[in-house]
Simulated scan of single mutants.
Amino acid sequence: MSFQAYLNTIEQKTGKTPDDLRTLARERGWTQGAALAPNIKPMAIVAALKDELGLGHGHAMAVVALLKEHRKEGDA
């Protein structure tokens, strides 16, 4: 599955676009600029996304990669 396919599935399941997810992360204090905030552990984000949005582990990890800017929309 491509990274973009993960993002598409997340949007279909939750209605949240990558920009929506970035906004959510900023509002929650998970990010600072284009990186995770120093006190934020990736697995804390994963747990919140699983609990609140019903994402599976792989899809939640894709969001973390998006927030860390390791991957971007359109990546294969």
Rank of each mutant, 00 (worst) to 15 (best):
F3M: 03
L21G: 01
A5N: 14
L55T: 00
Q12W: 03
L24G: 03
E27H: 01
T14Q: 09
E11P: 00
W30S: 09
M43F: 07
N8A: 09
E52V: 02
G56I: 00
E73L: 00
R26K: 12
K41N: 15
K50C: 03
L53H: 10
A48G: 07
W30E: 06
R26G: 05
L36G: 10
T14L: 12
T17P: 10
V46F: 10
A48E: 14
L21K: 00
T9H: 14
G29H: 14
A5L: 12
G74E: 08
V63R: 00
E11T: 08
F3D: 10
S2F: 04
H59M: 13
K68N: 11
K41E: 15
K41C: 03
L55K: 01
A47L: 07
G74T: 02
T31C: 00
M1I: 04
G54I: 01
L24V: 08
S2E: 14
A76E: 11
A65M: 12
A25Q: 14
S2L: 06
L55P: 02
A60W: 00
M61D: 06
R22T: 06
Q4V: 01
A25R: 04
D51T: 08
E27T: 02
K16I: 05
A35V: 12
A62L: 03
Y6F: 12
L7I: 01
A62V: 03
Q32S: 14
N39C: 09
L55F: 02
R71Y: 03
L21E: 05
G58W: 09
A44F: 04
R28L: 08
K50I: 07
E11A: 07
A44G: 14
A25S: 15
E11D: 11
T31Y: 00
A48S: 07
A34T: 12
D19P: 01
A47Q: 14
A48P: 05
E73A: 06
L7Q: 01
A47P: 04
E52C: 04
L55G: 01
V63D: 03
A25I: 02
A5M: 13
R71P: 01
A62D: 13
S2Y: 06
V64N: 08
L49N: 07
V64R: 01
A60H: 01
T17S: 15
T9A: 09
K72C: 12
N39F: 08
G74R: 03
T14V: 09
G56M: 04
E11H: 12
P18M: 00
Q32N: 12
I45F: 03
G29S: 12
G54H: 06
I45T: 06
D75K: 04
N39S: 13
L21Q: 01
T17W: 08
P38K: 13
R22N: 04
K16T: 09
A65Q: 11
L24N: 11
S2W: 06
V46A: 12
